[in-house]
Write a protein that binds this DNA or RNA. Structure first.
Lengths: 202, 202
DNA sequence: ACTATGAATATTATGTTAAATATTCATAGT
DNA sequence: ACTATGAATATTTAACATAATATTCATAGT
């Protein structure tokens, strides 16, 4: 017998900790949830938390990664509906991302602040966020290649360029001053530009 | 006789105040320059500053607007060189803007922080910044129309969409984690995308 | 009546101590 | 040997007093 309650694997306990932290982070944010509270919610001692996570920020990081996975799963789901073309997928994806960011910002401002702060200090978090979003975008771009919607030389660079152009639609500072409708309209115009381009070809 | 030293008009005194504030803001930032210091630099009393500006932030705002004018003048100058096409102008403008932002961020970080803070509290500043940059972009887009480079239905909306796509290249948070070379490359890719578009037309 | 000032007041920053919290560790339970 | 804990320590935050600074105002100089 390794653990007092053998029903609980290490993996499960980590999940439980994450879940308890999640609830508190959502409501109170990072600073205002304490390790003592998380432990109390789980009926364990504070020091025991450190047997599963090396620090409070590491819990926050794991939580952030979990959020990214949830977000990406949600967007994947949107893209699984039968869509006419890769162009449609691109619109659905970009608007889905905007909606997610907008909702997150308004429903859980504390979470948003927390993740932004983590991004300032941990490049791993930034990378995971970017890579996750990029991999979905690349699937869409590849689909477009197959459908002969467009021809792309460098998928990664093109994907990164497109994501760079979406920064305004995922940055609180810029989102806060506009309604969702305004943001949607502007994003729509931008997507048309990206798809069609400015130049009239001959 | 209205003023003790009649050589100085109200306009000139405002300019002098702005110039004195400029020097201090550049070196020490907003918080670490005091009204007393600005007054002392000009040999006047602190309270007299309030006869020309209603508050310290109003001086900062006037200074910010002055910065915008200088920036725009510099960019105009870049565009006055004989350029082959509107496409070239667009590249020169976008890259000029990136260089300006990058230099500003590294040479005068205090100024940059200050203007960002002002943008958070004053929509007038945000508007002026946007309008100034947009008006130059619109000139380029119009030139492109005349040159039959492209056809644009709504100049304003197209201009705003393009500027939205440039947010990453003018936001410190995102610029700080990348070299100028990386930023230039990504901006180049984005501009090509905006000009050429993804879709292969028939 | 216009311009400017010094003193008075209100607001904001700074430094300092006490309290809260994160983290470690030696020890106990299984 | 693995799991968990309470007590001990280190770090961060909060509260408060103090000082610095912004702003106002009554008054004086031209």
């Amino acid at each position: 017998m390794k653990r007092f309650d053998t029903n609980l694997s290490e993996k499960q306990i980590k999940k439980d900790i994450l879940s308890a932290a999640d609830k508190r982070f959502r409501t109170f944010g990072f600073k205002k949830t304490t390790m003592a509270e998380i432990a109390q919610d789980l009926g364990m001692s504070t020091s025991n938390l450190y047997r599963y996570f090396p620090s409070k920020v590491s819990i926050a990081e794991a939580f952030a990664l979990h959020c990214f996975e949830e977000k990406e799963a949600g967007l994947q789901l949107l893209l699984e509906q039968p869509l006419v073309s890769a162009v449609d997928s691109l619109f659905v994806y970009a608007k889905g991302l905007l909606h997610y960011n907008f909702d997150q910002l308004n429903t859980y401002p504390a979470i948003n602040d927390m993740i932004m702060a983590l991004c300032e200090t941990s490049s791993e978090i930034v990378d995971k966020k970017r890579e996750g979003e990029l991999s979905i975008l690349k699937v869409i771009l590849e689909k477009g290649q197959e459908e002969k919607c467009w021809v792309i030389e460098d998928l990664d660079e093109t994907g990164l360029a497109i994501m760079a152009s979406w920064v305004m639609f995922s940055t609180p500072t810029f989102m806060r001053h506009q309604t969702l409708e305004q943001l949607e309209k502007r994003l729509g115009n931008l997507l048309n530009l990206i798809i069609t381009g400015l130049r009239v070809r001959d």
